[in-house]
Amino acid sequence: MKKRGRGVASMWYGIGNTGLPNPAAAFIEVLSDTSVNLMVGCADIGQGSTTAMAQIAAEELGLDYEDIHVTSADTMVTPEGGATSASRQTLISGNATKLAARQAKGTLAEVASGFLNVPEEDLIFRNREIYSCKDNSVRMTYKELMAEMKKHGRLAVGAGAYNPKTTYLDPQTMAGIPYEVYSYATTIAEVEVDTETGEVEVLKVVSAHDVGRSINDVMVEGQIEGGVVMGEGFAVFEKVEYSNGVIKNPIFSKYLIPTAMDAPDIYSVVVECEGECGAYGAKGVGEPALIPSIPAIAAAVEDAIGVHFTSLPITPTDVLRELDKQKER
C-alpha cells in the first residue's frame, strides 16, 4: 500500500564564521570608458557569487551589470576573500564590494558635483547617468563624467573590506554575538511511502527562505532547489559506509545521490525581510537551502506511517523494520 504524508520543518542559520572575525575585501576601478574592473577574493564554486558581486557593484555605481568585469579568487590580483563557506560571501564579500564601489563613487561624485553644480549628497547614480535628486534635468552621462575625471586627473578606484560584527564567545558559557545576522527558512515536504517495499518517494517540496534581499531570484531558487535535493539524499539515500577506517562506497555506483528521476517537484518561495547589515540587505542562502528539507522529509515520513525516526537516512530497510514492529504491537 502507498501512504502519503506531509511534514514541516524550519531552521535558522547564522551567516559567517561563528564568533570569529572573518573579513573579506574587494578592489574596484571604473575605467575611462565606464567599464569596471572588480577584483574580489571570493571564490565562485558555482553558487554564483561572481554574478552577485557584479550586480552589487553595478547597483552601487549606477552602471549596468554588463559593465562590470569580475576577477575573483586569484591571490596575486584579488584581496583576501576568506572561504566560500558559512553562506558568508553575499553578506561579507558583498558588503566589501559595495564599500569598494562606494569609495570609487566618492571620487566620481566629487567631480560630478563640480560639473553639475549639485551637492554630492543630492547626486543619483543610475542607469549610466548621474543626476540631481532635486531636478533630474540636471544630469550628465557616465561617459561625460569619465571625460571630466580625465580632465582633472582623477581616478575612480576603491577598496572595501568588511568584517561582520561579532564577538568572541565566552569559553565557559558561549555568551556573545556569534553572528551578525541570521537567515531563516521553512520547508514543507510531501512523501509517499510504499509499505510493502519500504520505498520513500519525495513527491513535492515547498521551501520558503528569508534571504534578507534577493540579489538574483533565479540564482536564489537554484540554491534552494539544489539544497532540497541534497536534503532528500541526506534524508533517504546517502550514507558513507566505512569499517576499519576504510570507506566502502567512495564511488557514484555505491554512494547514491538523487538522480533527475528522484528529484521532487520543488516550489521555492523567496522571502525578503528588511535588514541593515547586508549589501542591500542580502543575507545568505547556500546552506539554509539544504537544512530544513531534511527534517521536513523525516516529518513527512512520520506523518505517513506514524514512526518517529531518530536516525538517518531513513532507508526502505528501516521503514519495513519499523512497520513490522508496529504490527507486533
Binding site: G46, E221, G222, G226, M230, F252, I257, T259
Partner: peptide
C-alpha cells in the same frame, strides 16, 4: 537520469 548533478536539484 544518467547525468548526475549535485548543484541544481535538476529543476532548472
Amino acid at each position: 537520469s544518467g547525468n548526475l548533478c549535485r548543484c541544481t536539484g535538476y529543476t532548472k
